[in-house]
Simulated scan of single mutants.
Amino acid sequence: MQSQVRKNQLSFKAVILLMTFGLIPIALAAQSFQLSKNEGEVKVTGTSTLHDWEEVAEQRNGSMAIDQSGELPSISSLSFTIEAESLKSGHDGMDKNTYKALSTNKYKEIVFKMGEVKSISPVVSTTNKYKVVASGNLTIAGKTNKVDLPFTLTVHDGKAILEGTKPLKMTDFGIEPPKALLGTIKTGDDIEVHYNTIWK
């Protein structure tokens, strides 16, 4: 009986060792990328009853892990954060209205964290470039919604470029579109986030 127990224990240890060493090549194949803070751009655009507007995110960071050992790259993790009060339009009054709408006194960051990659396919006639749809949680002004994030991914020479556009509605995140001049100027509910980011 004791002999059988020992054999079972040894077999179990052998399986664990095989699993561990079997996972090592996968872990080594995944390459970690950090969002470059001084290159690329993330901006938000929208409309108002007076004119169209845009705000650029000046403070952002993120990380991404990509495994390129297969026929198609595999993104195992992706997250990025924008400092809410780093959104700048070039107009102090508009920025103050934005920060008030985003409740930046309570919620300092806008955060996306990927849960899964829903699809990835190569861009025809282009090497190292892929169309990707990633699903994950986007948190704005303290409210988290699950969103699909579409982008093109280019990976070459230790650098990744992630670019795309994501339409959103402010009210989906409990944000009342900002107003100015006693409500005579109203911001539209629909916005777009444009991202052209460099990862190294």
Rank of each mutant, 00 (worst) to 15 (best):
V15Y: 02
H194L: 01
Q31E: 11
S121K: 09
S77W: 13
T49A: 11
K88N: 13
S119M: 01
G90A: 11
F12P: 03
Q2N: 15
H91P: 03
S121W: 01
N196Y: 13
I140H: 04
Y195G: 02
E163W: 08
I75C: 01
P150G: 11
K113C: 05
T139E: 02
N137E: 15
S3Q: 08
Q2R: 09
L78G: 04
F173D: 04
F21G: 09
H91Y: 15
T165M: 07
K37S: 15
T144D: 05
L181R: 04
K200S: 15
G46T: 07
I24A: 10
F112D: 02
S121N: 05
N128A: 13
N128K: 11
W53T: 10
G188Y: 06
L149N: 01
E163N: 15
K159H: 07
D67M: 06
H156V: 11
N8C: 14
H51G: 09
P122N: 10
D190R: 13
E58N: 10
D67S: 14
N128R: 03
T152D: 15
S135I: 03
L28H: 04
T152L: 00
E109C: 03
A134F: 02
G188H: 10
I82Q: 03
Q9T: 14
I191F: 06
E192C: 06
L28C: 05
A14S: 09
E83T: 15
N128E: 10
L18P: 10
N97R: 13
L72R: 04
K7M: 10
T152M: 00
K169Y: 12
E192M: 01
D189N: 15
S36W: 01
A180V: 10
Q31R: 03
E71G: 08
T81E: 08
D189S: 06
F21W: 09
K200G: 15
T171N: 11
Q68E: 15
L138W: 04
L18A: 15
W53S: 11
T104C: 06
V132E: 01
M19A: 15
I198T: 13
I120H: 04
L102P: 08
K37C: 01
L23P: 06
D190G: 12
E85I: 04
Q4S: 12
T165I: 04
I66D: 12
E83F: 09
I185Y: 12
M1N: 14
K131H: 11
D95M: 07
S76V: 00
A30V: 10
A14Q: 01
K100S: 14
L28T: 08
V42W: 03
E71L: 01
S63G: 12
I185P: 11
F112S: 03
A101W: 09
I110P: 03
Q4I: 13
D190M: 05
K146Y: 04
T104M: 03
F112W: 09
H51W: 06
T47A: 02
E54G: 06
T139C: 00
V133N: 08
H91T: 14
V5C: 01
G70P: 08
G164V: 06
F80W: 12
S48M: 02
Q4M: 05
N61Q: 10
S76A: 02
V147E: 05
G70Q: 13
Q2T: 13
V5A: 10
G90L: 05
K108A: 12
Q9V: 12
M1A: 14
G93S: 13
D148Q: 00
N8F: 15
P73W: 04
